Computed example of a mutant assay.
Amino acid sequence: MAARTETVNEFLVKAQFLLTPMALPLLELVDGKAAVWLWWLPGHAILGLLHIAVSGSGWSEAPVLTGLLVVWCVIAYAWAYRSVVRHVVERIGGGGR
């Protein structure tokens, strides 16, 4: 995304759309109950692991939450790699695949 923006302001506006799904699990802290679809977002896994670290209980959920974070990291890496190849490497003429 940073490669496709020309100004810092443009980057900040576009980043809001990417960061909103990360912050949605914080609604659980306000409401007290979470919708099932929020469980699949990476923010829920992060908050869950932080809760386990602070409270010291719920270690049975840690492997699932860690696995969810690993899946999101793989997805983010693949998306970023594809974006770099498409918008940077091909722009400079090195995309000869």
Score class of each variant (00 low, 15 high):
V13E: 12
V88K: 00
N9A: 15
L68F: 00
L69N: 03
V13A: 14
V64F: 08
L12T: 13
S55D: 10
I75Q: 01
H87A: 13
V30D: 05
I92F: 07
I75W: 03
L29K: 15
P25M: 12
V89W: 08
V36T: 09
I52E: 05
I75M: 04
S55C: 12
A35P: 01
D31G: 02
V8I: 10
V13W: 08
I75Y: 03
G67D: 07
G32V: 11
T5C: 15
L18W: 12
E10A: 15
A35V: 02
R4A: 06
P21S: 03
V85D: 01
V84G: 02
K33D: 08
S57Y: 11
N9F: 13
M22G: 00
W79M: 11
G96L: 13
L65E: 13
K14R: 10
G67S: 09
D31K: 05
A34M: 03
K14A: 10
M1H: 12
G48A: 02
V30R: 07
L47I: 14
P42Y: 10
L68D: 05
V54P: 04
V71F: 12
Y81S: 12
V85W: 02
E90T: 10
A15L: 15
Y77G: 05
L27C: 00
H44R: 09
L69H: 00
M1K: 09
L50F: 15
W79Q: 10
G95S: 01
R82E: 02
T66K: 02
W37A: 12
T5A: 14
L65W: 15
W40L: 03
L19G: 04
G56H: 08
I46N: 01
Y77T: 13
R97F: 10
V8G: 01
A53L: 09
L50H: 06
R4V: 04
H51P: 00
P21L: 05
R97L: 13
H87K: 13
R91Q: 07
K14C: 06
F17E: 08
P21K: 01
G96A: 09
M22T: 00
V74G: 08
M22R: 00
G56W: 08
G48Q: 03
A34W: 01
F17A: 05
Y77H: 11
V30F: 13
